[in-house]
Structures are given as C-alpha cells and as structure tokens.
Design a protein around this nucleic acid. Structure first.
Lengths: 255, 255
DNA sequence: CGGGACCTTGACGGAATTCAAACCGGGTGG
DNA sequence: CCACCCGGTTTGAATTCCGTCAAGGTCCCG
C-alpha cells in the first residue's frame, strides 16, 4: 500500500519572455539560435505554476499541452489497481513533460510535484510545425527522449539486479548528480524534497525496509536523512556501494 | 550469475530495395509518401544479417550506424560488474536500434539476437539530413522513441511492484501481443525463441524461482513451455493474473 | 556414448514484506 | 497553553517470498 490520494489542481497562467528564461540564462543548457528562439517564443502559450503535492498529469487523460519544467522537482509514476505505486523517474528543470501523451494519445503515467514548480506550456498541435520549421529543435526533442530512455534503462537495471542497499545508494547518487548539474542546489549543499515513501516506491521496496536500508547508509556516514529529504556527505563511497560511475557530463538541449 | 559469454560477430551486407521491404509490404506499418520513400532509399546503406546468439552492439562502443530490425528477435540488456544481467526490452521487427548511441555518444546497453535476424542499416551522419528534409520521418523517430519509453515504464512498474507470478504473466502476454501485431507469428500459434534464463534476467528473478513460477503458470494451463520457448494457451487468464489490459492498438510508423 | 544446453525439483537460509506499535515535530483548535 | 492529530520516521517480531546450493533429468548433437 503506497498511494497518497491527492487532488489539488494546478493553477494560473502568466507569460514571461523566452529571452528571460532562467534555463537559458543559467548557461547549463545549449543556447538557441535566433530563429530557434523566435520560434520557441511563438510556440510558448504561457506558464503553469503548481504547488508541492499537486498532480499535473493523470494516467489515462488527454492533455492538449506539452511542458518544460522551469523550476522545482516532480516525479512520474504509474499505479497498479491495488494501489501500489511505481515511481518511474524524477522530473527536473529542463525536462520535457507530456511528450508521450502528445505523440501516443493517452498519458500512460501521472506526474506529481515534489516542490512548488513552474512549467512552461506549449501547444501540442504546433509540434508538427516545430518539426517542419526547426529540425534542430526537433532533434533536441528526440535527444531528450533518448536520454529519458537511458535513465529508465539504468533504473530498470537497478531495480532488477541490485541489492536494496546498492539500489538506495544508486538512487541518491543519481538524484544528487542530476540536481547538481541543473543547478538545483545552490552553493550550499541542499536537500532533495522527498520522503522515504518516495524512495520506497522508486526502488520497489517496502517503506519499512527502505527505512532500515537508509539507516544503514546513514550509519556509514554517507548520507544524512533529515525531515523530508536527504543530504549526501560522502558521494564517493555512495557510488562505490552502488557500483556506479556517475552520469555522463556535457551541455544539453532543452525544449 | 546470469551472463553468457558470446562473441560471435554479425556479418555480410547486401542491399534490397526499400520498395520491396517486407515491413512496408506487410501492411502492419504506416506507409511512406513518395519523397519519404526516396529519402529512405538513399539513407539506407545496406543490410546486416546476424545469427542467433550474435551480439550486435556492445555497451560502451561507438557505432557509426543506426538499424531497423527487419526480421527476427533480439533483446537489449545491461550488465553489472559482477555479471548480473538485466534485459531491458525485446527488439522486434520495425524497432529502431542504436538511436541512443547515435544521439548520446556511447551505447549504454548491448543488443543480442535471439534468432537469426536481418537488420536494415543507416548512416548515422545523415540523421541530421533526415531531420532537415523529412520532418514527418523525424516525427516518426521521436514517436518510436516515446513508445520505447512507454514500454520501459511498464516494465519498471512490473519489476518494481508485481509479484513473481504476475510479473511472469505480464511478460509473456506482452511478448505475445507485440509479436502478434508485427506478424511474427504466422497463422499457427508460434513460439517465442527464448530460454527461462532470458525470462529470469528480464524479471529480475533467479533462474530457479523463474522455473517454479513458469511451472505454476503451466499448471494453470495458461502457457506451455517447450524446449526453448513458450506458447500461450489462455491469454485472458494470463492477462488477469498480470493485472494488465493489453497493448494499445493502431498502425505505427517505422524507420 | 559422452557432453552440453536447458529444464526441473527439493532443501535450506537469507532477504524483504507485513503487522504492530511507538516516537517526534508541527500545526490546530479547544 | 496544552491536547490532539497528522505526516513522517523508527524499531521489533513474525511470516513469506525468493535466492542459493545441490542434484538429477531430458534432449540433441558430435
């Protein structure tokens, strides 16, 4: 049993110019060419802000929109009829959301916010235009999809083959790496806003056993679990426990 | 311990006209427009045939090519240092192979043949051209990538949350559905060419426990395991055990 | 006839789930 | 201000599922 009923709805739409997009300005992503920027500006419909705990997409729904996450944390998940939940991946700034629903019809997973988030909203019907007029952006979208697939491959390997301890170590190191590269942690070592229930549902373990596993990691002084979140104190041994080298670096596209 | 050392290399390149491509002629896939067909013809470099057991891609390698599987069965997998293997997904006719390596640099998984296969080979360097001159084909590629992601989501849910019995039932039903829709089974109910070790490495279970689980399914008369492969005798109860409704239907693109 | 690949079965131990209970900090309302 | 509740974390004990070890069986092929 792992589901949390949560039905708060996201709200509000404004519009900030793409020129001022914090993702562009961060220097963490590939910058746009002139014509790309002007296209994206016209492609953008507005913004969506949602609170922590809000559900953005629900499995089975048809959404007319496509989003890029501007700020905050979210996660994608699927549920079984009996209420068991599997978290598939975490959504961080620069990640594209809702592509599956756009291309394949229905959404086959749900998305929920871990923190307050801001999303940039696009019209799904204009995706064809994007492919026609901006092949480089189309290429970027495919790139992002391929990268998501790569992460899922890695998670599947983890859940299928690693021990509970290695699995947990892997997840925390993974989240740490991703958050760091998109600049979610400022200068000070920050905390990922998730509960042990989230970890459990990601690893495919029970809450109780997840707790005991995280406790072991804490006893080894590799992490500190605090309130709803964790901080990594020894990334090297954490990676060692996971048997994992880390994420490939490099500048990535978004939108 | 689940790895099989296997180093036989694929061989031979011929060239069959795209006009005669069996995938096109099967009517199972979206057909090409004139200009698409001519582009694909020029995009194609030749064919690759490989024997059962051959490894097409190895994790960590750089391949200059991109492939579409024309006929046969294969699977994608990743390995841990200790030799444990996780099968990520199965590769069936119409599936694109090597896109990750093309877009992201290195291949992050390996691919092995379950049966003799024929692949259609494309030049990775011309993928940019494809995006420039054929947005609809570019769109198809993204579609295929999104669909692969969807399957991985489903597998992750399965491995993370379902019991051994449900997991096995799900996998067999899944394979059955996919093989059927691409016409891998002729009229007569056919057999998927995999061993119980493959099933074990897909489900994240030990070989012994996989055997006992499959035996239960067989005792319930939902499947028959025979030599290296299985046949489904009662898809309905198999789906029921899996708690799964089946794959979305509809005509799909390829290449 | 012997060996190899694959499937099968039983026994045992260990890892993870389930059940149950308690703790802690923060918020709320009497 | 204190009692109460709630979400999240923690711990112990009993149980079940699954992995490991070990051995045997079948079929095919050289």
């Amino acid at each position: 049993m792992s589901a949390k009923p949560d039905t708060s709805a996201p709200t509000r739409t404004r519009k900030i110019a793409c020129e001022d997009c914090p993702l562009r300005l961060s220097g963490k992503f590939r910058d746009f060419a002139e014509h790309e920027l002007s296209f994206v500006s016209s492609f953008k419909r507005g913004e969506l802000t949602a609170e922590a705990g809000a559900t953005i997409f629900v499995e089975g729904s048809h959404s007319p929109h496509l989003y890029t996450l501007i700020s905050g944390w979210g996660f994608r998940y699927k549920m079984l009829e009996d209420g068991r939940r599997q978290i598939l991946n975490y959504v961080l700034p620069g990640d594209l959301v809702g592509l599956q629903g756009t291309l394949l019809g229905e959404m086959e997973h749900s998305i929920e916010c871990l923190s307050d988030v801001v999303l940039c909203m696009f019209e799904r019907d204009r995706l064809g235009d994007l492919y026609k007029s901006n092949p480089t952006l189309a290429f970027d979208i495919t790139w992002i999809a391929a990268r998501e697939e790569q992460m899922l491959d890695e998670h599947l390997l983890s859940v299928g083959q690693r021990s509970a301890l290695a699995r947990a170590a892997y997840l925390l190191a993974f989240l740490h790496d991703r958050a760091k590269t998109v600049g979610l942690f400022g200068d000070t070592p920050e905390i990922a806003p998730l509960t042990q229930q989230h970890v459990a549902d990601t690893l495919g373990l029970s809450l109780v056993h997840t707790n005991k596993t995280l406790r072991k990691l804490q006893d080894q002084k590799t992490i500190i679990w605090k309130d709803a979140g964790f901080r990594i104190t020894d990334i090297a041994t954490l990676r060692e426990i996971a048997g994992w080298e880390g994420l490939p670096e490099g500048q990535r596209p978004f939108i």
